[in-house]
Design a binder for these strands. Structure first.
Lengths: 198, 198
DNA sequence: CGAACATACGGAACATCGTTCCGTTTACCA
DNA sequence: TGGTAAACGGAACGATGTTCCGTATGTTCG
């Protein structure tokens, strides 16, 4: 719901062309910098890549979280949209849950430092955390409820604790080949299952 | 195996008395500072508490990891020693494993920021990570092997991945009452179980 | 006991990074 | 084309980790 100046009505005065151009340049530069050096890349590096001053970054994206959210906006939305789709197509609610968690894990482990940032107690990342929760928590809760209703998992698992646990398990996945976050997440999700009662 | 100047032979020249005194003062100050502000407390704060200059810290403890390891040395050793004891006293190997993991989790969540530091990819903490693994990995491996041999858990679980997963789940436990690391670790350990074959 | 020497100390100084602020430039509109 | 408001750039500031060297002090030996 961000007005980028190309919007539909005239309530908000159109942004200046250089501002729009710089915002685009910043998004591109940040995306490249995140891939090259992780989401903790120094602000000055992003500014240099984009050919702007650091002041321009703070004007467009007051906190690092805003920039990260903007860069990954599409992928976060795609992940949110995948929840209901999986629930409809997968064989069981538990399979849908597992599939969705896989998507979430894939997203996190392919963005260097994102899982760490998500869990940082630094207030700067509070908005990042909040945005992830806003978009993805309801999806996760829905999948959990379906699996619980089907008697496949214990009924007392909260969506927030599961997402945080999964996010935590993704930390450091890229720094040591002996650690595989997907495997650990698999164990965690398996631990939610109820013993089959025949 | 650090020579503190009170050692047995004279191969190493005895350290100066002020050096020994300052090292003690630094350990006390660091312990207090870690409790008050976490293991990421600024170096200057520790120096001020100890009544020394920052140079003295770096002389005694070249990296933050060295200081952390020294402060928690006793507790790490106690955790290592608890492994065999639990295996002997607990009803089943799996119970011993679960009990030991509980000790490990308790240790981590009561030291603000320690779990985070353990997982930081900052090279400064490499020695911290290495020391934890040196002392605790064999203990964990032993417990895992016993539980696997008893057929209680799947046989392909590595000690390193388990310890890292558990450590990761402990991150941020103190920053949000809605997240309980012990609960998540419980799910993870439960996920290692093999279905009972009667 | 007192001097000489090695050891250790303290904190100033430097580097990095996030963040703010304001003089200058630029786009837009009349 | 000129005026105005928006946006820009980067210097400057504060916090923190780290290094370095002139100074102080413990220890030893004559």
């Amino acid at each position: 719901m961000v007005d980028d100046g190309t919007g539909s009505d005239a309530a908000v005065p159109r942004k200046r062309s250089d501002a729009r151009r710089n915002q685009e340049a910043l998004l591109d530069a940040a995306a490249a910098a995140f891939i090259a050096a992780g989401v903790h890349v120094p602000v000055r590096d992003i500014a240099t890549r984009a050919g702007v001053g650091v002041g321009t970054i703070y004007r467009h994206f007051p906190t690092r979280a805003d920039l990260i959210v903007a860069v990954y906006h599409h992928q976060i939305e795609a992940c949110a949209a995948a929840g209901p789709r999986l629930l409809a197509s997968a064989g069981t609610p538990h399979a849908a849950l597992a599939g969705w968690i896989d998507l979430f894990v894939d997203f996190l482990v392919t963005k260097h430092g994102l899982a760490e940032a998500l869990r940082s107690d630094d207030a700067t990342f509070g908005k990042l955390h909040a945005h992830f929760l806003d978009r993805l928590l309801p999806v996760c809760a829905h999948l959990l409820a379906a699996a619980a209703a089907a008697g496949e998992i214990r009924p007392d698992v909260g969506a927030l604790e599961l997402m945080r646990g999964v996010g935590n398990l993704c930390i450091g996945d890229n720094s040591d080949p002996r650690y595989d976050a997907r495997r650990m997440v698999g164990f965690l999700v398996a631990g939610l299952r109820l013993p089959a009662v025949p």
